[in-house]
Nucleic acid binder design. Structure first.
Length: 427
DNA sequence: TCTGGGGTCCTAGGACCC
DNA sequence: TCTGGGGTCCTAGGACCC
C-alpha cells in the first residue's frame, strides 16, 4: 500500500494582537496601530499601516516614539486575557471545519490535509478563512504545502502578496522552487540570527540555495535540527503533526518591574506575587511542581551600574501546588541570593519537575499538609475567579505595590469580564 | 618514556520559536 | 527617561561507573 503524500496547511492570524483590538474598537481600523510588550517596552505587533512606516518587530518603543507621534499612530499595551480568549475562539472555529489540527502558537494552527483532492485544496482554504473571519472577526492567511516548513513559507507569501487573497498553495515542484527563490534565508522557520550570519558568510542568501546546500556542512554547523529544516525545504516531511498537546515541562513567571527595586522588602513582595501567579497556572493545569527556582537580575542595558545575576533552585519535600508551601521556599531562596547595593530590574520564578496532581491512589496517602491545603486553594481560586484576580491574596504580596509592571494603554477584557463588556450606543 | 574504553547521567549554554 | 515573556530542543563537557 502506498502511503498518502503529506499535505499541511498553516492557518496564521494576520497581525493577531492588533486584529483582536480592532474587533472591539473600530476606530483602530485603517490607521497605524502598535501593541507593546510587557512593561510597555517593545513593539510586538504592528498593523500593516505601522509596518509601512518602517516600524520593526521588537524595536524598543522609545526609538520609534517620534514617528509614531507624527503619523498619529495608536499605541496599546498587551492585553493577554483578551488575546488568549480570542485565540481559543479562532481555534474552535477552525476545528469545527477540519478536525485534524495542531495548535502551534497563540495565533497559528497546522492542519493535516493528507488525502484531500488537490483540486479542492484552494476552495477549502478560502472557505476556512471566511468561516474564521465571520465567527471571530479575525483575518487569517493560509499556506499549504507538503511539509510544515514549506507551509510556513507559503503562508508568508499569502500574507505579503495581495493577488493571493490570503491563500497560497505549493502544488508542485515549480511552485515550491518559485517560493523558495523569493524567500530570504533568514525568513525560513528555524533559521535564527546565528545561522543567518553563518549561511550568508557562505554565500547562502535564499531559501532555494539553502535547500541545495550540502548535508554534511549543514549537519556539522547546524546540527540535526538544521538538517531537518533543509530536508523540509526539499519537500521531505520531517516534522509530524502533534495534535495532542505535550505535557508542560516547566512553568515560569518573570517580569520586569515598572521601576528598579533596591530593598529586600519590595523584592519579597514581587517574588511572592510572581510565585502566587505561577501557583495558579500550576493548579489550572492540575500539576504539582517538584522543584522551585528563583532568580533576580539587574538591568543589563545600564552598563554603568553594578551588575548582578543569581538563581537558586530548591527541591520541595514533595511535589506541591500549594501557594503557601511554594511561597515559603521562594522567599527562603530569595533571601539567600538577594544582595543590597544593586538596582534590580527583573525577578522570576520557575517551576519544574512537574507531575500530574491526580496521581490516582497516591492521594489516599497524601500527607496532612497537602490534604489541608486542597480546600484552601480551591476556595482561593474560586473567590478570585468571582471577585477578580488578586481579590484574595497572601499579605506578603503587598497591596498595590509601586514596582508593578506597566500597562499604561491597556484595552478592556471585552470577552472575559462582565464589567468590561463592549458598549454600543444606538441613536 | 609509556597510563583504556565505553557507557550513562547531569548541567549549562546556545539556538530557535512566537 | 524608556529595550518582553514563556517556552522547546540539542550539544558539549564533566563526573562517575565498570
Amino acid at each position: 500500500m502506498r502511503r498518502k503524500i503529506s499535505l499541511f496547511a498553516l492557518v496564521d492570524c494576520n497581525n493577531f494582537y492588533v486584529s483582536c483590538e480592532r474587533v472591539f474598537d473600530p476606530s483602530l481600523l485603517f490607521c497605524p496601530v502598535v501593541v507593546l510588550s510587557n512593561n510597555d517596552g517593545c513593539v510586538v505587533a504592528r498593523s500593516p499601516e505601522a509596518k509601512a512606516l518602517g516600524i520593526g518587530m521588537g524595536v524598543p518603543v522609545f526609538s520609534v516614539r517620534d514617528i509614531l507621534k507624527r503619523s498619529g499612530a495608536r499605541i496599546l499595551s498587551s492585553n493577554y486575557t483578551l488575546y488568549g480568549d480570542m485565540s481559543r475562539r479562532v481555534m474552535e472555529s477552525i476545528l469545527s471545519v477540519w478536525p485534524r489540527m495542531e495548535v502551534y502558537s497563540i495565533d497559528e494552527a497546522f492542519l493535516d490535509l493528507r488525502g484531500m483532492n488537490a483540486d479542492d485544496v484552494h476552495d477549502f482554504a478560502g472557505s476556512l478563512r471566511e468561516t474564521v473571519r465571520r465567527w471571530t472577526g479575525i483575518p487569517v492567511s493560509v499556506g499549504i504545502a507538503p511539509t510544515k516548513t514549506l507551509a510556513k513559507i507559503a503562508s508568508g507569501i499569502a500574507k505579503r502578496r495581495a493577488d493571493c487573497e490570503g491563500v497560497h498553495y505549493l502544488r508542485n515542484e515549480k511552485d515550491i522552487e518559485e517560493s523558495l527563490a523569493q524567500t530570504a534565508v533568514e525568513k525560513v522557520w528555524g533559521i535564527g540570527p546565528a545561522h543567518e550570519k553563518y549561511l550568508k558568510k557562505r554565500g547562502i542568501f535564499s531559501a532555494l540555495t539553502l535547500a541545495g546546500a550540502p548535508d554534511a556542512m549543514i549537519r556539522k554547523q547546524m546540527g540535526v535540527v538544521g538538517l531537518r529544516t533543509v530536508f523540509e525545504l526539499r519537500g521531505v516531511s520531517c516534522l509530524p503533526m502533534e495534535e495532542i498537546e505535550a505535557r508542560r515541562k516547566g512553568i515560569a513567571v518573570s517580569k520586569s518591574f515598572g521601576r528598579p527595586i533596591l530593598c529586600l522588602e519590595e523584592m519579597e513582595e514581587a517574588v511572592a506575587a510572581y510565585t502566587s501567579m505561577a501557583a495558579v497556572k500550576l493548579r489550572r493545569r492540575q500539576l504539582a511542581a517538584g522543584v522551585l527556582s528563583v532568580f533576580l537580575i539587574t538591568d543589563r542595558m545600564k552598563k554603568e551600574k553594578p551588575q548582578y545575576y543569581n538563581m537558586v533552585s530548591c527541591e520541595l519535600p514533595e511535589p506541591s501546588d500549594d501557594t503557601g508551601q511554594l511561597l515559603r521556599h521562594a522567599l527562603w531562596g530569595l533571601r539567600r541570593i538577594f544582595r543590597r547595593g544593586f538596582e534590580f530590574q527583573k525577578a522570576g520564578i520557575l517551576l519544574t519537575q512537574l507531575s500530574p496532581v491526580d496521581c490516582g491512589q497516591g492521594c489516599l496517602f497524601s500527607p496532612p499538609a497537602r490534604a489541608k491545603a486542597v480546600p484552601l486553594m480551591c476556595a482561593l481560586d474560586q473567590l478570585n475567579a468571582t471577585l477578580g484576580k488578586g481579590a484574595l491574596r497572601y499579605a506578603v504580596e503587598g497591596s498595590n505595590p509601586s514596582w508593578k509592571t506597566r500597562f499604561a494603554f491597556r484595552s478592556k477584557r471585552f470577552t472575559t469580564n462582565w464589567n468590561e463588556l463592549p458598549v454600543a450606543a444606538a441613536r
